[in-house]
Design a binder for these strands. Structure first.
Length: 277
DNA sequence: CAAACTACCTGACTGC
DNA sequence: TGCAGTCAGGTAGTTT
């Protein structure tokens, strides 16, 4: 599910409700909720205070007053909700973290994940990021993100442009929705080979992705169904602003040609055959 | 090394 | 109604 804008919406929500709280109890309900490379069980977070909530691309982590952090990836269907402990459990509840404070109405972080591609882990920081994120490139909203460098990296590649911008080791955060939206905005066909694009065209694709993701963050992310929610369990509104994703057969908002969907690199790609040659 | 492919899951939906 | 097939926003590991 969630791409950078959805994960950022979740991060901001967590920051609002959990920073400064202590983890009074932690429980896991599913073996795959804890990633196999976790250096300790989730229960080792018990007693820790949450100092901040960070993000790179689609990865989240909680800084603790410890020498390790609690990392989360939502995969395709993961949610992190902050709820009163008295609320009844959702289906697919995989783990929960009870929080201090709040008097009688104590809250907890709940990790819910239908498809179990998401995970949590206890990890050490290496150069300021969790160890499992060492191969994940900077996302475009990080201070040190270098647009020029990413453009020249992509310019040298022999793959199509779409898989390149989905490759989290080149830049992180873009997923299938925002890739299609960025390519539509930049008027670039998803199957064009990177080498055959000019640096300006590649730059246009990336600045389009940044623009679309910024707009999506403002709208609280994209929700199609029950699989993406912010920490309060609310859906985002960006799906109504999508121009091509999920709009096969509808007219292109720019030229009225019929939007097409093709299967490509094991995913759907939506594009306008007239605007994106 | 880069690129392409596969595996990992559950559930909603479609067409017969 | 039931059943097989398809599809879904992700990453990681293996093969070429």
């Amino acid at each position: 599910m969630p791409e950078l804008p959805e994960v950022e919406t979740v991060r901001a929500g967590l920051e609002k409700y959990v920073v400064g709280k202590r983890i009074n109890n932690a429980e896991s309900f599913h073996a795959r909720a804890t990633k196999s490379n976790s250096i300790a069980p989730l229960s080792s977070s018990i007693g820790a205070q949450i100092k901040s909530v960070k993000r790179r691309g689609k990865f989240l982590w909680f800084d603790l007053d410890r020498d390790y952090v609690l990392v989360a990836h939502l995969g395709m269907s993961g949610q992190l909700l902050v709820q009163p402990q008295t609320n009844s459990f959702q289906p697919h509840l995989r783990a929960k973290f009870e929080l201090s404070g709040g008097g009688r109405s104590k809250s907890e972080i709940r990790f819910i994940d239908q498809r179990t591609f998401g995970w949590l882990a206890i990890e050490e920081l290496i150069n300021g990021v969790p160890s499992s994120i060492k191969n994940i490139a900077l996302d475009p909203f990080e201070i040190d993100f270098n647009l020029k460098q990413v453009v020249s990296n992509i310019k040298r590649r022999k793959s199509a442009i779409k898989p390149a911008i989905l490759n989290q080791s080149i830049l992180s955060g873009i997923g299938n929705i925002y890739a299609d939206e960025a390519l539509w905005r930049a008027k670039i066909h998803p199957e064009i080979i990177c080498e055959d694009l000019s640096e300006d065209e590649i730059k246009k694709v990336l600045t389009s992705a940044i623009y679309v993701m910024k707009s999506a963050i403002k709208a609280g992310g994209t929700s199609f169904d029950e699989q993406y929610k912010n920490v309060n369990g609310e859906s985002g509104y960006f799906s109504r602003s999508l121009k091509v994703y999920g709009r096969e057969g509808e007219p292109c908002p720019r030229c009225r040609s019929e939007i097409r969907r093709i299967a490509f690199a094991n995913r759907s790609s939506h594009f306008c055959p007239r605007c994106q040659r």
